[in-house]
Computed example of a mutant assay.
Amino acid sequence: MEKPTITIRLRDQKYTIQGASTVREALEILQIPPELFLVVRNGELLDGETPLNDGDFLQLVGAISGGSAK
Rank of each mutant, 00 (worst) to 15 (best):
I64D: 00
R41A: 11
I32N: 05
P33F: 03
Q18A: 15
P33S: 13
E2Y: 02
F37N: 04
T22C: 10
I17V: 14
Q31K: 14
F37S: 01
V39Y: 00
T16F: 07
F37E: 01
T22S: 15
E28P: 01
A20K: 02
G43M: 04
L30M: 14
Q18K: 15
P34H: 09
A26Y: 02
I6V: 15
I17E: 10
K3H: 07
G55V: 09
V61P: 00
V61F: 01
Q13N: 14
V23M: 05
V40E: 09
G67N: 10
S21P: 01
S68D: 09
Q59R: 02
Q13K: 15
T50I: 01
A69V: 12
P34N: 08
L38R: 15
N42R: 14
P51A: 07
R24L: 14
P34W: 02
L60D: 00
L30W: 10
E35R: 09
G67F: 05
S65V: 05
R41P: 02
G19Y: 09
S68E: 12
I8M: 06
P51Q: 04
V39D: 00
L30V: 12
E25K: 13
A20T: 10
E25V: 12
S65N: 03
E25D: 15
G19W: 08
I6T: 07
G66D: 07
G66C: 08
G67H: 05
S65G: 15
K3D: 07
R24Y: 11
Q18L: 07
T7N: 13
P34V: 06
P51N: 05
Q59I: 03
P33R: 10
E35S: 10
Q59T: 03
P4E: 07
G48I: 06
T16H: 09
E44I: 11
Q59N: 03
M1H: 04
P4F: 06
T7G: 04
Q59M: 04
D12M: 13
D12G: 06
G55F: 04
G66P: 04
P51K: 07
K3Q: 11
E25M: 12
D54G: 03
F57H: 14
S68M: 11
T22K: 06
A20M: 08
P34E: 13
D56A: 03
I6L: 07
T5S: 13
R9M: 11
V23S: 04
S68K: 11
R9D: 03
A26S: 14
M1P: 04
G43I: 05
P33G: 04
R41G: 03
A63P: 00
L27E: 09
D12T: 14
A69I: 13
K70N: 08
I32F: 12
L60Q: 00
A20Y: 02
Y15M: 12
L58R: 00
D56L: 02
D47A: 04
E25H: 12
G62I: 06
Q13G: 04
S21K: 12
L38V: 08
V40H: 00
E44D: 09
L30C: 11
G43C: 06
D54A: 03
R24I: 09
S65T: 12
L46Q: 05
N42T: 07
P51R: 05
Q59C: 00
E28A: 13
E28H: 10
